[in-house]
Design a protein around this nucleic acid. Structure first.
Length: 150
DNA sequence: GCCAACGTTGGC
DNA sequence: GCCAACGTTGGC
């Protein structure tokens, strides 16, 4: 089993939205590296749910992959903000996965706390200038984050 | 295939 | 709202 971190802006879609919906499709990813990571995801993989671009930045909870990558249909929809004319149904450019709500942390593990933890210095989100919305996380890093949330 | 211009992301 | 750091685009 693998572990991941996925970023979202809570104004757009927060952990509370996922909790309410129980499950959600992670569509709209239009970055090749992030897409490639999504295509590696397997059913049962766990995801650190990260809030960016907000007051309290950090990991707010856990989600689980329940459907492995499949073509992102929002790329074909002209009215969708993520429409991409280059993505063809015969040969899709973009993919998405489905995730399920697992838990919301009692305490958000903030970016500041992550930065201050030497064990987490290799995480992509603490390295400067990283803008990837989907990144792999090691088992150790995942467990450390979970411990920090308690 | 290079690279300048432009757009986006995301922390502050 | 600013701006640094990237990714993407398009002219040559």
């Amino acid at each position: 089993m693998k572990y991941w971190l996925m970023k979202t802006e809570p104004e757009m879609y927060s952990i509370d939205n996922l909790k309410e919906d129980k499950r959600g499709s992670w569509d709209g990813v239009r970055n090749y590296q992030a897409r490639n990571f999504m295509m590696e995801m397997q059913k049962g993989d766990l995801v650190l749910f990260y809030h960016s671009n907000t007051k309290t930045i950090g990991v707010v909870g856990i989600a689980k992959v329940i459907k492995e990558s499949y073509p992102d249909h929002t790329a074909y929809d002209k009215k969708n903000e993520h429409f991409d004319p280059k993505s063809k149904k015969e040969n899709p450019t973009w993919y998405m996965v489905d995730v399920e709500f697992v838990k919301k942390f009692k305490n958000t593990v903030t970016l500041e706390e992550i930065k201050n933890n030497k064990k987490l210095k290799d995480m992509k989100i603490v390295q400067k200038g990283n803008r990837l919305s989907v990144t792999p996380v090691s088992k150790k890093e995942f467990q450390t984050i979970v411990e920090m949330s308690q």
